[in-house]
Design a protein around this nucleic acid. Structure first.
Lengths: 148, 148
DNA sequence: TTAAACCCTAGACCATGGTCGAGGGCAAGG
DNA sequence: CCTTGCCCTCGACCATGGTCTAGGGTTTAA
């Protein structure tokens, strides 16, 4: 008969603290309590929690998740609002993906350099270039820092 | 001759505060100062800042970025260390991408439902199912909350 | 009937990543 | 000279998202 907070925590890789925190923030208005005052999650509740994790993991703020949940609790009249909210968030996620792709390329580029057989030479050359640039601007050479 | 903190902030979409904060955290040991004690960024420094942003935007912790920068400052002897660090981070990024893809699918699924012509009916049915499940578990119905 | 293993709340505490204000110096134009 | 707009440091402050403790109740099995 329903899931305990501990079971839900394990299922979703959250801490019990986090679940209680989410509840305190109003993310779990749907969760009922049993006769002892313990939270009891139904299967439907798990689906809700899943959605919450999905939004959280894509970087949605707690307050925005709460907004979404509130819309859900309010019934079908809020479908347009949910659509707006999720569509906006979707765009955030897509933008995030794009940025991640770009940044991954940069990282891969760096790794390529490090994986060159003559990586050490390349790096040494770069350092020489930087040093020269610093010197040309009358700035201290940041390498081989002296403790003075 | 060189870029001021303000110019760098604008170029990278950071606040001046953030740049000073990064410096304080040891992320910018390469940045020199001019005769007045002002930070002066060279082109090479900008490339470094770019890398820092790239790592930050992919979720690397400040302390890990500092580790990477420290390796870079230490010279070619640390290439293996940098490779280890970036490779580990690369895996994080790829994992992040995977999770993002999966979560985006969930979001799209929800949006699909909301975009159905009979979305309202679907939602209403789901609510009825949830209500029934709550009732079966002797839990309060979370919908239409009364203020008592 | 007691110990172990759960559950609860309230509120303190914490880590991260900034953000800002106070107090003060530098540089350029009017 | 003096105002304006930069720059500096130091340290306080803040928002977010937890994490944990204290104090206390419940359930179950020995």
């Amino acid at each position: 008969m329903g899931y305990s907070i501990k079971e839900v925590a394990e299922k979703f890789g959250l801490s019990i603290y986090t679940i209680r925190y989410y509840d305190k923030q109003g993310l779990l208005p749907f969760v009922g309590r049993n006769a002892s005052g313990y939270r009891e999650f139904t299967e439907s509740d798990l689906r809700f929690v899943h959605t919450i994790c999905c939004l959280k993991d894509t970087g949605m703020k707690i307050s925005d998740i709460k907004q979404y949940i509130d819309y859900c609790m309010a019934g079908p009249a809020t479908i347009a609002d949910r659509k707006r909210l999720l569509t906006a968030h979707r765009q955030q996620v897509v933008a995030q993906q794009k940025k991640l792709r770009e940044n991954l390329q940069e990282i891969d580029y760096k790794l390529d350099v490090y994986n060159q057989p003559n990586a050490s030479d390349i790096i040494t050359q770069q350092r020489q270039y930087v040093s020269q640039e610093k010197q040309a601007n009358h700035l201290p050479n940041p390498f081989q820092k002296s403790n003075s």
